[in-house]
Design a protein around this nucleic acid. Structure first.
Lengths: 223, 223
DNA sequence: CTCGTTTTGATAGTGACTACCAATATGATA
DNA sequence: TATCATATTGGTAGTCACTATCAAAACGAG
């Protein structure tokens, strides 16, 4: 609606969303998610509760904004169909994570990463947020399967694609939890690669047959 | 509280729970989950809304009663620690599924299976239910990791256990979806075995090295 | 048959969320 | 610059899930 006609309005809109979300995550972290009402968030952000609901359809969305899906799907379709499924998916997940955590410049990187960590911690510790986040992963799974572009006719291949995608996303989620527990000190793509290796074997994630089982050393620079 | 002192009261209580849940699943299936209020369920079951909330803490629990966790955890601790992680977990999941779907006798089997399928379909198609169900799986994952009994000291082994458990449960969920899509015509343990094989390789699920890749024929009678 | 416990019910309240409608701000145009 | 279409915001009232709190009723055990 707005981002089509006027880029100025879109920018203003994105800014208010950012402000609201920042106050929300701060309050949720300080007082707890359930103890904080949407009205509290609105007050802190200096807007009315209606405005909050207009920008974020549910209270959970104040924490769970994910455009992650598009990123991953694009990398899936760009990957070679000759590779095994888990490698195609795993590679896309690692690359997307590298893009998310390494995208900032200079000091912004730290702030962005801290904000991402704060949201992640909320997601993990709050049941309602965790549930909706896992369901978002389920939607991402469907997007991945679609992006893999298998024949819809071969239902057996479709099933294998579903299994591969769900298992890879499960590994991703476990990696995210681990990363949050480490306060983001480790490199997220490395943790994801480690999780994928633990699930599917060390040979599946790195085609260039390295022998390092526990600690991948190199940068997560692939393709 | 009640199930300790008087078995008669426990039986009455279980019966009312069963009645309420049956009406709930029926109404949810007929009118849709969101379009059915808890008051509607209470009316249909002939009780007050308060009584519904006393037996089922949330509306979602009217569909999602799972004691599945205990079953799986028991089989995990009973499994041999010498086997690889995914085999221990996968075997427990398959056995528990066999117990859930094959437990009935005679005609009861059909009714129970139909009820299970109805709940499963609701779980898959309703976002709120799907989210909470996936979160239940997350709790089950923790139970599995605990049951595996790894050293809490070795954080790397703990991480591998988390990854293995989450990936196995992801495969289980995909299998459940597939089973529901087939209207329960296939054998659930076989579908789960197939999903695990698709995720981790055909050799991991059946130690007796069969060569049948696609369709496991034998009963899921293991150990 | 009575007593203590369990179960149930009614009332009032909170908070997330959704219409619906009015007011305001804003960017583009005459 | 003044105006206009439109985007954005705010207020009101209402629904529904869910939670106290307290009283009434049912029920098994003595």
């Amino acid at each position: 609606m707005s981002d089509q006609h006027s880029p100025l309005r879109a920018k203003r809109r994105a800014e208010t969303q950012r402000v609201i979300q920042a106050h929300a995550v701060r309050l949720f972290t300080e007082r707890g998610y359930d103890a904080t009402t949407v009205t509290d968030v609105a007050e802190a952000a200096g807007v009315s509760p209606m405005t909050v609901y207009r920008h974020f359809p549910t209270k959970e969305d104040l924490v769970l904004v994910d455009q992650h899906a598009r990123l991953v799907a694009e990398r899936i379709v760009a990957s070679s169909a000759a590779q095994p499924l888990v490698r195609r998916i795993g590679g896309a997940l690692i690359d997307s994570a590298a893009m998310l955590t390494g995208g900032g410049h200079g000091d912004n990187l730290t702030a962005d990463r801290r904000f991402l960590l704060a949201r992640l911690r909320l997601m993990i510790s709050t049941p309602a947020l965790r549930a909706k986040h896992l369901d978002n992963h389920y939607a991402l799974q469907q997007a991945i399967v679609d992006a893999l572009g298998n024949d819809a006719a071969d239902s057996d291949a479709a099933f294998r694609a579903q299994v591969a995608a769900s298992a890879c996303l499960a590994a991703l989620h476990t990696a995210l939890v681990r990363w949050a527990e480490d306060d983001g000190r480790t490199e997220l793509p490395d943790v994801i690669a480690k999780a994928l290796a633990a699930a599917f074997g060390d040979d599946i994630v790195e085609p260039t047959g390295g022998v390092n089982t526990s600690e991948p050393i190199g940068r997560a620079e692939r393709r």
